[in-house]
Design a protein around this nucleic acid. Sequence first.
DNA 1: TACGTATAATTTGTATACAATATATCGGAG
DNA 2: CTCCGATATATTGTATACAAATTATACGTA
Lengths: 219, 219
Amino acid sequence: MITDNNSSETKISASRRIEHALVDSITSGELEPGLRMDEIGLAEKYGVSRTPVREALNRLVAQGILVTGEKRGLFIAEYSREELGQIFEAMHEIEITCARIVSQRLTLLTRSEIEAAQAVCMKAAKDGDRKKYLRANEAFHETIYRATGNPYIAEIANRFRRRTGPFRARRFLNNDDLISSAKNHENLISDIFSENSNKATNGMRNHMTESFLQALKAN
Amino acid sequence: MITDNNSSETKISASRRIEHALVDSITSGELEPGLRMDEIGLAEKYGVSRTPVREALNRLVAQGILVTGEKRGLFIAEYSREELGQIFEAMHEIEITCARIVSQRLTLLTRSEIEAAQAVCMKAAKDGDRKKYLRANEAFHETIYRATGNPYIAEIANRFRRRTGPFRARRFLNNDDLISSAKNHENLISDIFSENSNKATNGMRNHMTESFLQALKAN
DNA sequence: TACGTATAATTTGTATACAATATATCGGAG
DNA sequence: CTCCGATATATTGTATACAAATTATACGTA
């Protein structure tokens, strides 16, 4: 959902605020998959009534971040090994498509943005700042999505990233993992910047395969 | 959103009922893009209060079927020529991905299902039953999505189909258009059934290009 | 003790109320 | 006659209330 522009001075409704807060907590892995979302508890926590909480939860369900389980209530989506394989495959395919498109449509601006995003990743990795790296890594991939010039494709890719967030977050255990991930980006970038569709496709394929393997190990 | 199983004897909430009714009316082109969704009007029409209507509308927004316009209120999404190009490109890429995956994973069951779906299309086309053909065509594509064996990819594809529904619906003007579309399916099927990824990719590419051209003409 | 049943406590879905805000209508000044 | 501003109207977002349905608890019986 093509989120709202500039955060500054935009009057934001309680339901949006809660939605964003929850997406943040969930994708970062702070709230664990399987956890039940308690309407009343959330309402109290955010100092509002159930109504805006329900709106927020509804939107998260539509995004696949929450699901209705066996019991009553909404739960943070959790996936069996097989489902995890499927959802990563889907993300994989979208990412590859993005990489191919970007490699065909590079501009000075998009090249710069991608390099800038990568610089932030590298710095966070070298500083050993795990939390910062997680954010920078997400931003890096989002930059690639945007560089397709197609907001609809970018949105799909972002949604998959949000849904798989909690499972990917677990994989960065030590500082070497961060460095290794950032180095991977370098290869990916050079494949995309080659403006060769096949190279870009394979570059992203490798990057995602790597990423998936580590996620599988960690789950 | 992986809709609820068997329609029979499933107790369905008012908000779901309204959501489904609206999705139906919108994707079939019955309600035109740009139309404003009036909460109060809908509440009266369906004999409920604003609350369930709002829930339904919220979900449609999350699916990109409704958008917030300049003025107050929610509107059926309408797209500029450029946006239409982008959204069709996105759908195009997903469909191609589906076709490739299906061609690599055909089973006796999925082959049969695809052929059965096509038979329904052909019959509707020959009968000149436009409304029936529209439904059969959607079902045909959905069958292909499901044949990927990956519900997450299938869901994405279905969502794009719903979003572009109103624009594709316009293109079938006379009976020849129906026949022509159904014949196109035959080629697509033989490309997919060849179990050759490249053939399947190109087959779907051609099919979608054709479809997009006609949609552009009609919009 | 284990099971089934009645009762209590939660929880969901919907209705209604209301304040805040955006849009429309109207009237007057230039 | 056109533009501006004040007032009226409509609409959104949120709060609260409540019935229906689900889940948990307690109790009695075999």
